[in-house]
């Protein structure tokens, strides 16, 4: 095999270490694997992905769950970039997000009789509307309209607050100092 062919073929495979075992998987499989999260569990990540897409389409692929997990993992308040810092909520912010996500799932069960990740598109839209108006039944968590506002702002940040997203919107970024990372 020539070197160029080797590089081309090998680039389709990535090595991952999972629970001390090495295995070879392709890029699609790798993407489908849950990213290693520090704070968020699988179910919470699933809710973030679904709710994020329902409120701000594109939020999942823009990395909303990774953004939240990374920021909630910061050891010092001064390193946290979440907008919730502005909104009078004491740190650490984990309990705010985790209780809000839990309330989403439970409220879905009460309203629609099924878990949040089972809602169809129409139900999701209705759910978000009710959430934004503090009208979900038996919501137990931060006020749902406030949680909606904070969560929506996070989703906006990752989806519309980066150089790539400015380009997609057709407006110049014009940085003095270009951010080396989106967050």
């Amino acid at each position: 095999m020539k070197r160029r062919e080797f590089v081309k073929k090998s680039s389709l495979f990535l090595g991952f270490a999972v629970t001390s075992q090495s295995l070879l998987i392709n890029q699609n499989d790798a993407y489908a694997l849950p990213a290693p999260m520090q704070v968020l569990g699988i179910q919470e990540t699933r809710i973030i992905d679904i709710l994020g897409e329902a409120i701000v389409p594109g939020a999942k692929s823009s990395g909303l769950s990774q953004y939240l997990d990374q920021q909630l993992s910061q050891k010092r308040d001064s390193d946290c970039l979440l907008m919730i810092r502005y909104l009078g909520v004491p740190s650490p912010f984990n309990s705010f997000y985790l209780s809000g996500l839990s309330a989403v799932d439970k409220s879905s069960g009460i309203k629609f009789g099924k878990s949040f990740d089972q809602l169809n598109e129409q139900e999701l839209e209705e759910f978000v509307e009710l959430m934004a108006k503090d009208s979900l039944p038996d919501w137990k968590g931060p006020p749902s309209s406030f949680f909606y506002f904070v969560f929506r702002s996070d989703a906006i940040d990752v989806t519309y607050g980066t150089q790539d997203s400015f380009r997609e919107l057709g407006i110049p970024y014009m940085a003095h100092i270009i951010p080396t990372k989106n967050w």
Binding site: I55, P57, M83, F149, S153, I156, D157, G161
Partner: peptide
């Protein structure tokens, strides 16, 4: 104003979500 942040364009209309947002 930029698209995001507390004083950004998107948060001027927090009622807009889903397909209407983009």
């Amino acid at each position: 104003v930029k698209p995001n942040d507390l004083l950004g364009i998107a948060n001027s209309r927090p009622d807009i979500f889903g397909k209407k947002l983009k």
